[in-house]
Design a protein around this nucleic acid. Structure first.
Lengths: 134, 134
DNA sequence: CTTCATGCAAATAATTTGCAGTAAG
DNA sequence: CTTACTGCAAATTATTTGCATGAAG
């Protein structure tokens, strides 16, 4: 269980109850879009507004607390910041699974004349469960 | 120079002047978002409407003529459909460069229990030009 | 205390839709 | 011919902004 208050302060952000609530929601879901965060957080903080979520998502991305995960044909989802990893995105059920990138894999992606900051690797296909349903 | 009429027909789409215009614009830019397509195409077809672009982008993505390239914190760009490749996205100037994925690299990305369809690899960092400006 | 965050309502931007008139095959 | 496409205007949805009040450090 992550200490969201710590994470926020470490990244120069005040720890408000709205922010920890949003982080808890993201952490819980793994990957989640703004509307779903709103639905989720509202349960515990009914007065929390969508505008507050927008403002905070932008802010927390800027401060490196969370990361945007753009998905083809959908609204972006967000996840807690962690080491680069691969997203396995199921085109059938929409489930997103994280997969570690080994050092060797990352090395292989290295490109000359380009100073790499973040690698975003999304593999679209069919997860095990959905394959078996065909 | 690609024959856009051919491409469209091959993918079961009528070849209208608006569609070939959009494809030409995308091909020309490499990677371009909807607003910029609009600005570009309007020069030659001033009556072409933004609604038509939206409708056709959605349609051409569905038919596999073009591909969405989501970019963190921006509106998605679009490119002509081609073999999977890597995008080098410069965080400074915004330039996107395509880089081939060798078979070995693609093999390395293979994951058990996941039937891969499309690989989307975006590397965010600094291009050569922008590195030298620091 | 002091500064920054929240919530609301209102503004703006982005995308979608319906429909009458056109064009492609 | 027949079916599907376009352009327009209107509707909807998504996102941003300003400001008075309230909470964090």
């Amino acid at each position: 269980m992550t200490d969201y208050i710590e994470v926020l302060k470490k990244n120069d952000l005040k720890a408000t109850i709205q922010r920890t609530g949003i982080l808890k929601s993201i952490d819980n879901a793994g990957h989640i879009n703004i509307d779903d965060i709103y639905e989720d957080v509202k349960e515990n903080y009914p007065t929390l507004s969508l505008a507050t979520i927008y403002k905070n998502i932008i802010l927390m991305v800027k401060h490196g607390v969370i990361v945007e995960v753009p998905i083809n044909g959908e609204k972006s989802k967000y996840e807690l910041k962690k080491d680069d990893h691969i997203h396995l995105i199921c085109k059938s059920c929409g489930e997103i699974e994280d997969k570690e990138i080994t050092k060797e894999k990352k090395q292989i992606l290295a490109v000359e004349n380009f100073k790499l900051d973040t690698a975003q690797i999304n593999l679209y296909g069919l997860c095990k469960k959905c394959q078996s349903l065909i």
